[in-house]
Amino acid sequence: MSQHADHTHPAGHGGWNMAVSATLHCLTGCAIGEVLGMVIGTAFGLSDAVTIVLAVVLAFFFGYLLTIRRVRRAGLPLREAVRIAFVADTLSIAVMEIVDNAVLVAVPGAMDAGLTSVTFWLSLAFALAVAFVVTVPVNRWLIARGKGHAVVPH
């Protein structure tokens, strides 16, 4: 592999650093949407299924929105920014949301805990942390292949 290719598609330690950075970016959008969805669902007494769907939709929305904002700041037009966000973030957000919500459902009482419950907040934080750990290697794999956040202008 040429030196240029190594720079474009990071290998080794640098690739992991980029994967962690990309996953933190993903986690930010997912956490905003996930927390908002869980808070709304819990506050309105929505079923677990409806609450999870709402949280997932909002996680994708905010995840994409953060990337679109970043790409727009790099000077790209909105249409291109949206395309890049979908390409860069879809798999990462999907993995994060699947893991996050699976953990939340698996934690006894997490989905039934109220907003003032320590169980609710600790379960949500734990689920997001597990999702982060699982998603880093996914982002590393994408970046090593020139996909995911490797396509996002910096």
Rank of each mutant, 00 (worst) to 15 (best):
R79F: 05
L76G: 01
P77I: 08
R79T: 13
D89K: 07
V87Q: 14
C26H: 02
V35N: 03
Y64D: 02
C26A: 10
V56Q: 11
G45E: 11
L54T: 12
D89W: 04
G33E: 13
R79N: 09
R73K: 11
D89M: 09
L76K: 12
A49Y: 07
D89C: 09
L65S: 11
F44Q: 14
L66C: 00
E34G: 10
L54P: 04
L46C: 02
T67K: 08
M18W: 14
L36R: 08
I40P: 09
V71N: 06
G41K: 14
I52G: 01
D48F: 05
I32Q: 08
C30Q: 06
L24M: 10
F86W: 13
V71G: 05
D48I: 13
T28D: 06
D48W: 13
H25F: 06
L66E: 09
I68R: 07
I52K: 09
G37H: 13
M18Y: 05
A43S: 07
R73F: 07
C30K: 00
A22G: 03
A81F: 09
M18P: 00
L65H: 01
G75M: 11
L24F: 10
A74C: 01
V82F: 07
F60S: 12
I68F: 05
V82L: 14
F44V: 12
A19P: 11
A31I: 03
G63Q: 00
L27S: 11
E80T: 12
G75A: 02
V39N: 12
T28P: 00
T90F: 10
D89V: 05
A19I: 10
V53F: 08
T42V: 10
D48N: 14
V82S: 07
M18V: 13
V39T: 15
M18L: 15
V57T: 09
A31W: 00
G29V: 03
L65V: 08
A19E: 09
A43V: 12
R72H: 04
L27A: 11
Y64M: 02
S21F: 04
I32G: 02
A81E: 13
S21Q: 15
I32K: 02
R83M: 03
G37P: 10
L76A: 05
I84A: 11
L27C: 01
V50D: 14
F62L: 13
V82E: 01
F62K: 04
L66I: 06
E80V: 10
R69Q: 04
G29I: 01
T23G: 11
D48S: 00
A81I: 12
T51Y: 07
P77K: 10
V39I: 15
F62I: 03
F60L: 14
R83Q: 07
V56K: 03
E34L: 09
I52N: 02
L58R: 01
P77L: 06
V35R: 12
A22K: 01
T23D: 06
I84K: 08
V20P: 00
R69N: 03
A88I: 05
L24H: 02
T51V: 12
I32H: 01
R70E: 06
C26N: 08
A55G: 09
L27H: 01
M38K: 02
A85I: 05
G41A: 04
T90D: 06
H25G: 02
G75W: 10
L24K: 01
I32T: 07
I40D: 03
C26F: 00
L78V: 15
H25L: 04
A49K: 03
